[in-house]
Design a protein around this nucleic acid. Sequence first.
DNA 1: GTGCTCTTTCCTGCTT
DNA 2: CAAGCAGGAAAGAGCA
Length: 273
Amino acid sequence: MSIMSSSPLESSLTSSWDSSNPYPDIHTVMFGYSGRLLPYESQPQFWSKYQVWDWVQQIMDMHQIDTSSIPLQNFDMDGHQLCSLSYQDFLLAAGSVGPILFNSLSELKWSGQNQTDIGHCDLKQEADTYLFSSPSYPSTEMCEPCLHPVLPVASHTPSSPEIKRCSRPYQAKKENQRGIHLWEFIRDILIDPERNPGLIKWEDRREGVFRFLKSEAVAQLWGKKKNNSSMTYEKLSRAMRYYYKREILERVDGRRLVYKFGRNARGWREVEK
DNA sequence: GTGCTCTTTCCTGCTT
DNA sequence: CAAGCAGGAAAGAGCA
C-alpha cells in the first residue's frame, strides 16, 4: 500500500482538506454523520464490521470522494478494532482520506462517550506530527508469522508502551479460498442487509435481479476475500459472465451493472432460506 | 504428475 | 470519450 500517494483522490480532497486548514469539516463530519445515528450507533466501539464499512462510505460520500479510491478491505474490522487504530494507522490504511476518517471517528468517540481523553489539541498535535513534519514514514516492521507490515496500535497515553500488531486486516481462521464461489459471495452480500452497506441492491427480489451500486468496492471486497489486492470490477465481471453458460446467472440485456440469478443459483430466494 | 474446476488476467471489439 | 459488456485465450491455483 502506498502511503500518502498522490492520486486523483488528493485533488478531490483539496476543498475540505489542506495544510492551512487541517480540520475544516470537523463539525460537518461530526454532526453530519453522528447526527443521524441511533444512540448505540454513535459509539463506534460497538459497531459491527459492516457498520464500520457503512461509516467509511458515509464519510466518503460526505466529502464527495469515490469509495473505490481507498482499499475498503483495510477497514475489514469491527468497531472495537477500528477504535484501536492510531492516526498513523489511518494514514496507512486510507492515505489522504485517513485524517478525515480519524477525525470523524475521534469526534464520534468523544461525543458518544463524552470523554475527553482525545481532545482537539491532541488530535491536531498528532495530525501535525505525522502530516506536516514527517516527509516519510517510519521504517516498516514485519509481522513474523505472516510477513505483513506491523502497525503501531493507538496509544493515547504517551507514557504507555507502543504495542505492535499486524497491519493485515483481521481475518478469522484462514478459510479454503475455494470454499466460496464468487456468485455465493455476491448472494451473501445481497441477502444479508447488515453485510451490505449500499454495495449491491435487489432490483427485483422475486426474480433474482440485482444491481451493483459500488462495483469497484465489491471487487475490492472480493479481492480481499481472495487475498488479491489487484482485483477490479472488470475482472470480477468477467468471472460473472462465465456464470451465464452454467446458468448460475442470466443475462439482463441493456442494463449496466445488472445481473440476474439463474436456475443453478441456490439460496437467494426468500422461501429457500 | 495429471486433469478438472473456478477463477484471474489480458485482450479486442462492441454498446451505452 | 469513458465506462461497461461480451467473450476468446491462456494462465494460475486448489483439489482429487
